[in-house]
Structures are given as structure tokens and as C-alpha cells.
Amino acid sequence: MRPNLTRNTTSTMRVIGIETSCDETGIAVYDEQQGLLSHQLYSQVKLHADYGGVVPELASRDHVRKIVPLIKQALVDANCTQSDIDGIAFTKGPGLVGALLVGSSVARSLAFAWGVPAVGVHHMEGHLLAPVLDEPAPEFPFVALLVSGGHSMMVRVDGIGQYEILGESVDDAAGEAFDKTAKLLGLDYPGGPLLAKMAEKGEAGHYKFPRPMTDRPGLDFSFSGLKTFAANTIRGSDQSEQSKANIAYAFQEAVIDTLAIKCKRALKQTGLKRLVIAGGVSANKQLRVEFALMMKKLQGTVFYPRLEFCTDNGAMIAYAGLQRLKAGESEGLSTKAQPRWSLDELPAI
């Protein structure tokens, strides 16, 4: 959808979203009626010559130097200017305090300068609502599984701000287990996707990994043991390429199986039929195959955000922030970052 150049009226709201909770600097412009107008991630962007010509490679988490050029570029791409913006949403937490403070300071200052409200968004709420950015959007209520390098979490979502954490990882995140096992198999870090590729050459039945925490009730996860199991298995193998592929296969099978068992349990426990899977691990092909089969059997539906919104991004923050601004929420001038913040503390709107 192309944005038009007419000035916003008060009936429709246009919001900038700013995400700086960890590694990525993500900026987006979202319009209540027209949807997503632009989104930028530093790692993908080729900044225009107007903003400094050739852009040097900046270090991870150097949000300070990335954020302003990205905001300018996001406005240009959305065909609008600061006067079209009705509010600013930023990731307030959880995350790395130094990284969060850059986003919250810039957001709150810009909002003050432009005379618009600013609102702090919970990073995980952004992820939970990301599938709503595309069609077909899942209707509430649904069960969401967030699986990435930083998170493994099962949440019941009844509406915006109505979240019940059903389970989460007690140690490593699922994506982290993928990345670290990949490293143990001699792949570059973070090598989750490379491990999945290696697993395609693997054969079933050579190795049997445990399915952690599936033999007891509850929806918590633990993936640290799988990584240690992989380390021991690799050291005990002949370390040939075929053995490594077989280990990759068995590892991936164990992670997917564990996630599937827990999701099935969560759907049964809640009586819901809609499942959302978000986070970088949801891009795993084999996972999507297994979950399609499972959901068919359960006569339910599985939804995924578009791939670029599975990982950290500004669009999900803009969308969640817009909903909260419309509900009348805003942050005072003294707003701070909130590095530790549980999803179930959020108010419903």
C-alpha cells in the first residue's frame, strides 16, 4: 500500500516505532488506516547519501549513531515528515539497559520537540502482536509460542495486554541451543539455520536426544541440557561429516518434538485452536512441516509473522504502541527504561 501525502487528520493516527532493546536498531512508521508505511533495520539498510554517503560498518548495539539516520530514512520511505507523526512508540523493556536507554531518550525527546505523545512498549508484546501486521491475522484468543535466540515462551493471548504466561525457558532459549550446537558441530556462530541445512543430510535413528521436561506436567522449557548432550555426543562420535549431519538431525528433531509436545499441551489446557509461532526459530522449515501436520490433526490453525518480523523490528513496536496510544496511554518526561519487566504486568486495553 502506498502512503499518500495528505496531512493526517485527527481521526487517523500515524506512529513511529523505535526498537533498541538489544542488537538491532529497528524503526518503522505505521498508520492506523493505511497500515505499515515503512520499516528499517540497520543491518539491512543502505542509507542514502544525504545522510553521510558511504556508511561505515558500525558495531552491534551502537544504537546512538544508527538511530537518527534511520528515523529520517523511515520518514522519507513513508513519504511523510515529522508533522505527519501523531505519536512515538519505543521499546521500554525488557532488554539491555544501555541499549533501551538510547531508544527511550530519543523517543521521549523527539516527542517533546514535536509536541506529540510518547508511549513505552513491552518488547514481547510487540512480538506477540507481530502476526497481526499481515493477513490473515489471527483472531483473539490464541496461544503464542515465542522461540528465538533470546526467548522461549508460551503465552495465552486473550487481547491486547491480556497475557498469561503459560511457560518459559528456565535456562537457554531454543534459538540459543540451535546456535550453540551449531558451533559445537563446527559451524559459524550464530549457526541455527546452518544446522538446519546440515540436518537435511542427516539420517534418522542414529542418535536419540532427550526431550527435556516433557515427562512432567507444565509448560516450561529447558534447552541447556540438549547443548551439553550434543557436546558429549559429538566428542563420542567419529566426527565424520555424516555423523555430524546425523547429530544435527537428532538435535533438531528433539527441539521440534519438545516444542510440539508443549504446544499440544498448551492448546489442550486452554481449549484453544489457534496457535501463533514467532521468533527466529519459527523460520525453521522442518518445524513448519511438523507443526502443519500437528495442527491438521488437532483441527486448528497455525499462524506465523512474516519472516522479517519474526526477529526484532520497529514495525511490531509501532503497531503495539499505536494501540496503546489510542487507549490513552503515554509516558511522562521522566520515563526510564525497564530492563526487567514481566509480560503479565501489562494493563489490558
Binding site: 537457554d172 540459543e176 559445537l184 550434543a230
Partner: peptide
């Protein structure tokens, strides 16, 4: 990787009386 550094830290933090989850800080 897998040697037990995070397990050691988990034991240390729980040993001081913390009762919640001690998650891996690799991502954050």
C-alpha cells in the same frame, strides 16, 4: 560450550537466596 559456566553462575545466584529463574545471558 556446555562445560557448565552458566550452571555455576546459577548455583552462585541461587546460593545467595535468589529464587527465580537464572536464564542464560548469552542473548542479552
Amino acid at each position: 560450550l556446555g562445560a557448565g559456566k552458566t550452571s555455576f553462575c546459577r548455583g552462585f545466584i541461587h546460593g545467595l537466596g535468589y529464587v527465580g529463574r537464572v536464564k542464560s545471558p548469552t542473548y542479552t
